[in-house]
Design a protein around this nucleic acid. Structure first.
Lengths: 228, 228
DNA sequence: TCCCCTTTTCGTCACTCAGACGATAAACAC
DNA sequence: GTGTTTATCGTCTGAGTGACGAAAAGGGGA
C-alpha cells in the first residue's frame, strides 16, 4: 500500500436533539491546535482496523457518555477538501445522530467540554474546519427525513404522546402545526405509531394516550410541510 | 500526520443510463489482482492533492471518454470495511452518476474494457470487492430520487418528449404508467419541464412537443409510485 | 361542588390531487 | 380516403389535507 497516497480518516458527528423546545447540536470546544478554542463537531480518527460505523458509534458513546441508548445513526457524507485540515490530508466521514433529550449532562468521559448548543445560536462560520457546512448538511437531511420517515420518533423517549411528537416537528421545522390534523395524520398513517394502552397523568388538560414507534420505515402518505 | 493511521482513498462510480429500454450500469473488467477478471465498478485512487468531487469527475471522464457532458453526479456514500480490499485498508467514496444514453461506445481512453450491463443481468455477488452492495445502494437511491426530484431528466437528452421521460420512469421503476395521467402530472408540476416550442417529426403517431428540464430542484407534488 | 381553563380527540366541509378511462387530434402507411 | 399509432385533453370518483367546530377529560380555585 505504500504506493498509494496516505490519507487520515476521521469520523465526525452531527448529534441532534430537541430540548427546551429548541433543536440543539452537540459541540465540543477544541483544546489543541488547529482551531484551538473554537467550537467543533465531536469526532476523532478512525482506527486502522476499525470499521467506519463502529468508529461513529464509539465516538458517539464517548461524547455522550451513554452506551448507545435509543436514537438513530446514519452516514451523512464524506468531506475531504485538500485544504480543510492544516495538519495534512484528512478525509472525514460525517454521521448524523438523532437522540432523545438526555437526562444526564454529556460532559462525560473523553471530550474536553461537550455542550448542547441550540442550532439557532451557532454563528455561521464560527465552527472549526468545514464543520459549518457539515452541520448545515446534517440539518437539511434531518428536516427532509422527517417528511417521509418516522424518524421524528428518534427524538422522543420510548413512550410519547402525539403532542410530544408534534412538538418535535414544530421545533425541527420551526413551524406551527394544527393539533387536530396532526393527530389524524399520525394515527392514520399505518405503522407510524402504536398505542401503548396507557395514558399520561398529572399534566395539564385531558390525559393523552401513550404511543411507541411503529414498524414503518417510510411514511405513506408522507408528512408534507410547506416548501415555500 | 505520521502519527495517524494511513488509509488509501478511492473514488468508485455507479454510472447509470437507460438504453434499449433497460437500466444499465457501467462496469469494467478487472485486469489485475485482486479479483482479476471480475466485473467491477469503475474507479481509482484519489490523488493526495485532489478534491473528492474532482476525482469523481476525472474518473467519470476517463471511463466514459466524454468531457463531463450532461447528466448528474452526486455522492452516494463511503464504504470502508477493514476487510473489503485484500491489499490493505482502502476507503472508497462512492458516487452516483446518471447519464443520457451515450452515442459513443465507452471503451475509451483509460479503462480496460468498460461496458454497459443491464442491471437485471448483474448477478448478485459477482462483482469485485463490495461493489455489489454499492450498486444496490445506488439503484435504490436513483429509484427513490425519481420520486421527488426532476432527476429523471438526467437520463434524457437536452430536449425530450413526455413519452421519453415516461419511458425513463417505467424503465427505472419497472412499472407501467398511464400516458394520460403522466402527461398531466409532468406538465402540471411547476418547474419540472419547459416547452421548447418545437415538436418531433418523422416518428410514428402524432408528433410530440419537445421539452427541456425546468428550474425545479424538488417536485411538488412528488411523482409517487406504489410502494407495495 | 361548580365553573373555568387546558389539552386531547373526534367530526365536518371544501378543495386538491391521483387513478381510471373516454374522446379527440395529428401524424404516417396503404 | 381508411386504418394505425401516438399525443393531448377532459371527466369522474375516491383519497387525503387544511380549516375549523365541538365534545371529552383532566386540574385548580371560589
Amino acid at each position: 500500500m505504500a504506493e498509494y497516497p496516505p490519507f487520515a480518516v476521521t469520523a465526525d458527528l452531527v448529534v441532534l436533539t430537541v430540548r427546551a423546545d429548541e433543536l440543539s447540536v452537540l459541540l465540543v470546544r477544541r483544546g489543541v491546535p488547529p482551531y484551538e478554542g473554537a467550537w467543533a463537531l465531536p469526532g476523532g480518527f478512525v482506527g486502522i482496523d476499525e470499521d467506519l460505523p463502529d468508529a461513529a458509534v464509539r465516538e458517539l458513546a464517548e461524547e455522550t457518555g451513554l452506551p448507545e441508548p435509543a436514537g438513530h445513526l446514519e452516514q451523512l457524507g464524506t468531506y475531504g477538501h485538500p485544504g480543510r485540515d492544516p495538519r495534512g490530508r484528512v478525509v472525514t466521514v460525517a454521521w448524523l445522530a438523532l437522540l432523545p433529550d438526555l437526562p444526564t449532562p454529556v460532559a462525560g468521559t473523553d471530550a474536553a467540554a461537550a455542550e448542547w448548543v441550540p442550532v439557532t445560536k451557532v454563528a455561521r462560520g464560527r465552527l472549526a474546519f468545514d464543520h459549518d457546512r457539515i452541520l448545515g448538511d446534517g440539518l437539511e437531511r434531518a428536516r427532509a427525513k422527517l417528511e417521509y420517515t418516522p424518524l421524528a420518533t428518534a427524538f422522543c423517549p420510548p413512550e410519547f404522546t402525539v403532542a410530544q411528537l408534534r412538538a418535535v416537528y414544530e421545533t425541527v421545522w420551526d413551524t406551527r402545526l394544527d393539533p387536530r390534523n396532526f393527530h389524524r395524520k399520525v394515527t392514520g398513517t399505518p405503522g407510524f405509531v402504536e398505542p401503548v394502552g396507557r395514558s399520561t397523568e398529572g399534566d395539564r388538560g385531558r390525559p393523552a394516550q401513550l404511543f411507541r414507534r411503529g414498524p414503518a420505515t417510510v411514511l405513506h402518505p408522507a408528512m408534507l410541510r410547506q416548501h415555500r
